[in-house]
Design a protein around this nucleic acid. Structure first.
Lengths: 250, 250
DNA sequence: CGCACTGTTGATGTGCATCAAACAGCGTGG
DNA sequence: CCACGCTGTTTGATGCACATCAACAGTGCG
């Protein structure tokens, strides 16, 4: 059976525990004391599994919980009035989904699992309540919200000023850096999303993504085979991003 | 003396009072009780004036305060590594500056006054402290942070999917809507920024902005003379934004 | 007045979108 | 087993929207 985004999410209940979570140090509880983590734990009643291709939530759904990604890979996207999709982000373990829903108490984007995923729902009302009592939890939440704003501004810079190849190089470096933070190789990575989704994220067409990969490959910066990317020359990629109007390097 | 962005800001001290502020209902204290507003008032020691062309803060400055715009018009912008500017937003009365600094305790962008401005500095550490005690203040702060995220995602949609004329129409409608919320005319508006800054904001060149204005004028949607814009046909402008791939209307 | 800055418009170039076709992988069913 | 459709990727040919380059007009200011 093919996955449909509009189907209800597939859930399986699991007892949760931030304390023993592998992304504890990247997630909401970062820097909290053992005691504080235990109090946060009481909010997270169970983990939820989301199957590949299914939605964790849709735009318009009321906000109940924020979601900490425990496992897997999501995309978030908004739809324009005339139905075109803009991917606003790709989220991996330790990252928080649903932040944009706080504004209106309704989710402003949809979150789709790009592979089988597991998330920790954090009931938002209770999170606010608990962060009244725990200043460091409140501070973490502020930082996470602010970090998303900084990230978005970086994306605006990318969309407004970078060529297609530069965008692609920046995208790969960003993925690589986030994966390596999580203990994965910063060299060899697997793209969980399709070319079209990368394109939407970067403000380009899928064909341009393909050609971009080819360019970077022909310059000896990456090796690419389908969804498998190997970064051969991270420094070269970085130069590709910053060296915007530098035709001498060709 | 021409204004330099790198000069220190010009300050003049004024006693502050949220309670009597004209944008009380658009700003941080929205929905707070009289008593709660008074407690917030105690944080804001004095208002600060920023002269046209001067910076309220620069990227890299340490975060001390958030700033509520009381009067005037700002732009915020980030610089790419190779020195190109990306305008990330234009802020008017009631809007909060400095949210992106919470992430790293340093401002990630610069805020420049586009006209003589007045802001209320809100010491962030104390704001966090007070919002421990005042749940509705905490909630407001969360909403403001989240609203910025939603706004940015809208900008990504615009940058990724819209033609130059559509971007410009969306920009004008957005300005018009925010100005009318503040009691100004939604029809007649004055652009406080230069064409180049609009262009940077929308991911276009200044010449393209000029031509876009000409197009909208030739379609009878707006009247434009320098910095003065009159919106003649708001509905037509809206159709211009949503009707993305509709060549029949030309 | 003269200069710097901003805005407008025209001519030309180019980077990416669009259109199109071929191919690979993969599950399904004859 | 192969044929088949379906999805995703790659590559080529062509067109267009916007960038770039350039000239000039309007405005404010020392």
């Amino acid at each position: 059976m093919p996955p449909f985004e509009t189907q209800p999410i597939q859930v399986r209940y699991l007892k949760a525990a931030c304390s023993s979570c592998s992304v504890l140090e990247l997630c909401l509880p970062i820097g909290l004391s053992h005691h504080e983590v235990e109090r946060l734990d009481t909010l997270i009643l169970q983990r939820v599994k989301v199957r590949k291709g299914h939605a964790l939530y849709h735009a318009g759904d009321p906000l109940h919980s924020l979601y900490a990604v425990r496992l897997g890979f999501f995309k978030t996207s908004v739809l324009s009035v005339d139905g075109r999709e803009q991917v606003t982000g790709f989220q991996m373990a330790g990252e928080i989904l649903g932040l944009d829903a706080i504004s209106t108490d309704r989710h402003a984007c949809s979150a789709i699992a790009l592979e089988d995923c597991e998330v920790c729902p954090i009931p938002f009302a209770q999170l606010q309540q608990l962060s009244q009592a725990l200043p460091s939890l409140q501070h973490n939440l502020h930082k996470i919200l602010s970090r998303e704003i900084v990230r978005d501004h970086g994306m605006l810079l990318l969309m407004g000023n970078m060529s297609s190849d530069e965008r692609l190089a920046a995208f790969l470096l960003n993925l690589s850096q986030r994966l390596s933070l999580r203990g994965y190789s910063s060299r060899a990575l697997v793209l969980r999303m399709r070319r079209e989704e990368i394109g939407s994220y970067l403000g380009l067409r899928l064909e341009t993504i393909c050609r971009g990969f080819t360019h970077l490959r022909d310059q000896g910066l990456i090796h690419i085979d389908g969804k498998h990317v190997e970064i051969l020359d991270p420094e070269g990629l970085k130069r590709r991003v910053t060296g915007c109007q530098n035709p001498g390097s060709e």
